[in-house]
């Protein structure tokens, strides 16, 4: 996978763990890059000649202090693609303001949001 500007990817217990690098996901070009990188993750999970990664994806928000509606839209697109691949998506480690953003918008009904990365990974195993 080429160098990624916005995300770091790891694999833990058969879950693709994506850590968002930036504190603010706001500038339009940055939001577009984030969307492209997230979708490239799903595409690498869904085919190709290399080893298959898990269809399950966890997004770790530990570094994020601000998340725009444009960035939320990228997550929604990702969620649809992950679901189409037979996987599930979890979000974790949100700062209170970012967590509230998902509550205000009712998007916590679409996304399972866990306090910690460990809890999120465990929630996949329990499903």
């Amino acid at each position: 996978m080429p160098d990624l500007q916005c995300i770091e990817i790891d694999s833990i217990d058969d879950v693709s763990v994506v850590k968002l690098k930036d504190a603010k996901v706001m500038a339009p070009a940055q939001v577009e890059t984030l969307g492209d990188e997230l979708l490239s993750l799903v595409e690498s999970n869904s085919g190709g000649d290399g080893p298959q990664a898990s269809a399950n994806v966890l997004i770790n928000f530990e570094n994020v202090r601000f998340f725009s509606s444009g960035a939320i839209n990228k997550l929604i697109v990702l969620e649809k693609r992950v679901r189409a691949n037979g996987g599930q998506i979890r979000l974790s480690n949100m700062q209170p303001e970012v967590r509230d953003l998902f509550s205000y918008t009712n998007l916590d009904q679409m996304f399972d949001i866990l306090s910690t990365q460990a809890e999120a990974i465990e929630s996949f195993e329990n499903n």
Partner: peptide, 17 residues
């Protein structure tokens, strides 16, 4: 955008926020 039928749509969220 908070209506269940619109949750997965990408429009309207900015105005609501």
């Amino acid at each position: 955008p908070t209506d269940n039928a619109n949750l997965d749509k990408c429009s309207g969220r900015g105005v609501m926020l």
